[in-house]
Design a protein around this nucleic acid. Structure first.
Lengths: 145, 145
DNA sequence: GGTAAATAGTATCATTCGCAACTAATTATT
DNA sequence: AATAATTAGTTGCGAATGATACTATTTACC
């Protein structure tokens, strides 16, 4: 590897990560944008509730590193569409716990199946060893925040 | 790996990529935001010109997969700050070729050095084998667009 | 050669984002 | 117990984004 190369965009990891993440996001968002007219943050909130059970907005913020205003707006939108309900906690009325409705769970199941199909196809494009390395690196780097 | 896990966010590559890319971007943007009050697209345009020589806006769009309106605005901003100049091509007056000014080259060199330092530190957090695997996967996935 | 299609880049406008200020509720301090 | 500090969540507002329409120029085609 020459000096010139090591100084260039082609080896700069934050840039490459961003390009790769954008490419995947662009492909995958078709599944929730066209079918349910959902934004990415809305998809994330839905999946946090679907995958991890009932949570407060704060818990979703902490898990996903999404800004609280974005989560707040996504929650409001999902609630308006009848995909989730909120209940103020009796023990601390600042918190409200969110819970998917029957319809919300239906939508989650549908999109979860789409996600699994997409993910499986993507895994197919790499060897199991490559996947393991990638997966552990992604987790490690995502922890940095 | 259980079924439940394979259906969950924790293994979903587009999500993990996005989280990792965001974490790195958040760290790295300090170098150009605080020092030069630059946006990411502006940084990218500067680096395309610095790394690959004079280009038209269209060429930057094609190389970086950034929308032409974003590039257009980034170019206008860099021009206003005196970091680049534009010259309409004589052979086709629709194109204009951009060229870093002396000041623009200075800024590029400074930020390039920051980028190299950052990248080297990031590489240190993984083995050479991990890096090679990661790098080739990132390139492959970024190509998808 | 004149008209239509294509291309580079800009402008417009509606949507989304992110910061900061705000409300409401709880906890800590004295 | 009163006041201050903290926390969860929302709102308002200016900045950034993205889709579309537009201008100017070139190329294709009849």
């Amino acid at each position: 590897m020459t000096d010139a190369q090591s100084y260039s965009l082609d080896d700069f990891l934050p840039y490459l990560f961003s390009q790769a993440a954008d490419a995947l996001s662009l492909e995958f968002q078709q599944t929730y944008r066209t079918k349910y007219n959902m934004l990415r943050t809305e998809w994330r909130v839905l999946f946090h509730l679907g995958c991890f059970g009932d949570l407060t907005a704060k818990e979703i913020c902490d898990r996903s590193n999404v800004h609280k205003t974005k989560v707040s707006r996504a929650v409001a939108s999902l609630e308006k569409r009848g995909f989730l309900t909120r209940e103020t906690m009796a023990t601390d009325r600042r918190h409200s716990v969110m819970c998917l409705t029957a319809e919300g769970r239906e939508v989650f199941k549908d999109l979860q199946s789409e996600a699994q199909t997409y993910n499986a196809a993507l895994k197919q494009t790499m060897t199991p060893e490559e996947f393991e390395t990638l997966h552990s690196l992604l987790l490690r780097i995502a922890q940095r925040q």
